[in-house]
Each structure stands twice: as C-alpha cells, then as structure tokens.
C-alpha cells in the first residue's frame, strides 16, 4: 500500500439479489480511497442506489463483504454497526428532514449516535454539539434559519440542512443519492459546490449518484459507470469522455442527461 493512501470503502465480491429475484449488484469489487469525490452514473435501474445504500447497509447485500475504514460493516451488528454508520453521512434526493422540527434539531439529530439514549431523549446535547451544529449551518450558509421549522424552507435550503446534518455528524464519508434531482439548475450548483467544498476543505470522502453527465464531469475526481448491476467504467474524470458515457449508457447521450448551458 502506498504511503498516505487509505482505503475507506472496499467492496469484496459483493452481490445483491432482491427478494423478487432482480439482481441489483453483480459481483462488485471496488476500492474508494480517502478524499476522493466519486460520482456514480448509469441509466435508471442500473443499480446506483443499490450500490450506495449497501455502503451503510440501508440495503442488505446477499453475498460478499463491504469494509469501511478497515471494519467490515456487513459482519457488524448492534452497537458496532451503529458505530460504523456514525461515520457515514447520507444525503437523500427527498432530503428526509423531520419537517415539523426546527433546522437546528434536524442538524442535532446527526449527533445522537454519539450519546446515550437517555441523554439525547432529554435533549441534553453538550455545548460542543450545539456549536458543531451552528458551524455546520454556517458552512452551508443557512445559519440564520437555525430556529425555523424545516418545512418553511425551500428545497435547496432543505438539502443544505441535510448536508449540515452530515457535517455535524462529523462523518468521514458522505453518500449522496441524487442530491440535486429535485432542485432547479441554480440551486443544484449551490448544493454541488457545497459538497465539493466540504470534500476539499475537510477531506471527507464523497460518493454521489448523479443523472447529469456534465455535472459528473464538472465535480467528480473519479467516475464509476454502472449498467445492469455491474461496473462498466471506473476511472479518473479525464478519461470519462462523451464516448465513454455513450458506452455506459449503451447509446448516444440524450439532451436530458445534460444539465446544459443553464448552469
């Protein structure tokens, strides 16, 4: 192993068959290193979400092993599984915030994995936690909304709250499953910029599923192409030419796979 390079996520012969027989992942072998900004692309149904959600075990895989920073998450359970999950922040297409709670409470909910049930239920977060939450909100520029209810924010603001939640979690890995799919082009740029800044400034390993090829080319350091549950392309962003994308998609690129000149 080269000095200074750490394997953060490792897939070893991972396969996933859904109960209805659909093969979501077929014998995946993959290593992601610290600080990478990986974008996963592929047609709808290619298995991008399945891949991403296997990393923190929101999906169970049926074969193989996934290792997170040296610990096998597929063999963990109970407290040790939660300990691994604590280091992995997740950002969803639909934000998944508790709409009736304040922004601050949503961000603080990223901290519960660090404390006892009793303490969190009583709302006794230590001051450092609250400061961490404020810093996270500051970093995504919505500090002034801390005491606003989440359902009173725009989509872009809500997505930034969920990024703040992952930051407050002090996650070492951030997984984002189509984080911008329900946002307009301008907001998309803000959110992607936030993700890139966090990746570069804090060195958080980031794995993002995206539909838009040009976004992938703009933000990724490494691109993984999937088709029918298999990895059909894996390489640095420079190698991912339009021709390669056509290969991943099995056909020429279409207009709706480009965000276009709007950004």
């Amino acid at each position: 192993m080269k000095v200074g390079i750490q394997k953060v996520i490792e897939f070893k012969n991972v396969s996933k068959t859904y109960p209805n027989g659909v093969k979501g992942l077929k014998n995946i072998n993959l290593t992601i290193e610290k600080g990478e900004f990986v974008v996963v692309v592929g047609l709808s149904g290619a298995g991008k979400s399945t891949l991403l959600r296997s990393i923190n075990r929101l999906n169970e895989v049926t074969e193989g092993e996934i290792v997170i920073a040296g610990k096998s998450i597929t063999n963990s359970s109970g407290a040790s599984l939660r300990r691994i999950r604590r280091d992995i922040g997740m950002i969803f297409q639909s934000f998944n915030l508790v709409k009736r709670s304040t922004v601050l409470r949503n961000v603080l909910s990223g901290r519960v994995g660090y404390h006892s049930t009793f303490r969190t239920v009583l709302g006794l977060f230590p001051n450092e936690d609250v400061n961490l939450a404020f810093e996270a909100l500051e970093r995504v520029n919505i500090l002034d909304k801390a005491y606003t209810r989440a359902d009173q924010l725009s989509g872009g603001q809500q997505q930034r709250v969920s990024i703040a939640r992952a930051l407050a979690q002090e996650a070492k890995i951030i997984l984002a499953d189509e984080p911008v799919a329900s946002l307009d082009p301008l907001t998309t740029k803000h959110v992607m910029d936030d993700l890139r800044r966090i990746n570069q400034e804090l060195g958080i390993t980031t794995v993002v599923n995206l539909h838009h090829v040009d976004l992938a080319q703009e933000y990724a350091t490494r691109i993984i192409g999937m088709r029918a549950g298999e990895i059909v392309f894996d390489g640095p962003v420079e190698e991912a030419t339009d021709d390669k994308f056509s290969e991943i998609y099995g056909r020429p690129l279409q207009n709706n796979e480009l965000l276009g000149a709007t950004v």
Binding site: N56, L58, R82, R83, I84, R85, R86, D87, I88, G89, M90, F92, S94, F95, N96, L97, V98, S109, G110, V112, G113, T117, T120, V121, S162, R165, Q169
Partner: peptide
C-alpha cells in the same frame, strides 16, 4: 424518509 435518515446516522431504535 426521516426514519431512514436517522438510521443512517447510527441512531438506535429508541433514538
């Protein structure tokens, strides 16, 4: 959705 998000942060059942 929020339940899933909380599970992903490493929260236990009660949290």
């Amino acid at each position: 959705g929020p339940t899933e998000a909380l599970m992903a942060t490493g929260a236990n059942r009660f949290q």
